Simulated scan of single mutants.
Amino acid sequence: MMSNLFSSFDPSTLFFSLNWLSTFMGILFIPSMYWLIPSRWNYLWIKIIMTLHNEFKILLNEKIKGSTLIFISLFSLILFNNFLGLFPYIFTSSSHLIMTLSLAMPLWLSFMIYGWLNNTIHMFAHLVPQGTPPILMPFMVLIESISNIIRPGTLAVRLAANMIAGHLLLTLLGNTGSSMNMIMINILLITQLLLLILESAVAIIQSYVFAVLSTLYSSEVN
């Protein structure tokens, strides 16, 4: 029995270490035959990876071969976590800021350190958009600096908020089922199924958005 509505998102409600191990549970769902004999799932996943690779390669102007792999791996990790969180009694690590910030902050810091050490002039020029009137330049520098600093926070909060909002809505609707008659329960089941389809789409979209924005932030420092 849950003590409150948010206890399903609390890592300490069950076994703390086992909860966070669900982050890597997606690897267990990949059958061993995937690596040995080509199958439809194999071809589908390779098609997704190649599509992402071609898109990220354009965004990055791939100067170093294989630089898209980190963003494809990031997409895969978040996608597995988002989908696993839709199953009952599985802890959703991607709905916690400690997880999403751990993904966004190191990426952003590495981009900033690399950019300011290797492309200092370009980084300074990026603070003032082309065609800005001289009187507005100090304000633009301030605005661009603030928007740059809050980037990891916006990445992390966007992912966590979207995950926790859908789960809360499903939980709220599910808890009202015991007080409904048979007709309303049927309507509730249809609504829950539609919301589950929507959450599956959100799981894909949010992992894609996180990976694409990380790629765009990386391309700005070159």
Rank of each mutant, 00 (worst) to 15 (best):
P31N: 14
P31I: 12
P31A: 11
S32C: 12
S32L: 08
M33W: 15
M33C: 11
Y34V: 11
Y34P: 02
W35I: 10
W35F: 04
W35D: 07
L36A: 07
L36E: 04
I37F: 06
I37D: 06
I37L: 08
I37H: 15
I37M: 09
I37G: 04
P38L: 08
P38D: 08
P38N: 10
P38S: 05
P38Y: 03
S39L: 10
S39D: 00
S39K: 02
S39A: 07
S39F: 14
R40G: 01
R40H: 07
R40A: 10
R40F: 12
W41T: 11
W41K: 12
W41C: 04
W41A: 06
N42H: 14
N42W: 15
Y43H: 10
L44V: 05
L44I: 00
L44D: 05
L44K: 10
L44M: 09
W45H: 12
W45D: 10
W45K: 13
W45M: 01
W45Q: 15
I46Q: 09
I46N: 12
K47T: 10
K47M: 06
K47I: 05
K47A: 08
K47Q: 08
I48G: 07
I48S: 00
I48Y: 03
I49K: 05
I49H: 09
M50Y: 13
M50W: 11
M50V: 09
T51N: 04
T51Q: 01
L52G: 02
L52A: 08
L52K: 01
L52R: 02
L52P: 02
L52C: 07
L52I: 04
H53W: 06
H53F: 14
H53S: 13
H53G: 01
N54Q: 01
N54L: 05
N54F: 12
N54H: 14
N54R: 13
N54Y: 09
E55C: 14
E55I: 06
E55A: 11
E55G: 13
F56T: 02
F56P: 08
K57F: 11
K57G: 12
K57D: 03
K57M: 02
K57C: 00
I58D: 12
I58T: 03
I58Q: 03
I58G: 01
I58R: 03
L59W: 06
L59S: 02
L59A: 10
L59N: 10
L60W: 01
L60E: 00
L60Y: 02
N61V: 02
N61W: 09
N61A: 05
N61L: 12
N61H: 08
N61G: 09
N61C: 14
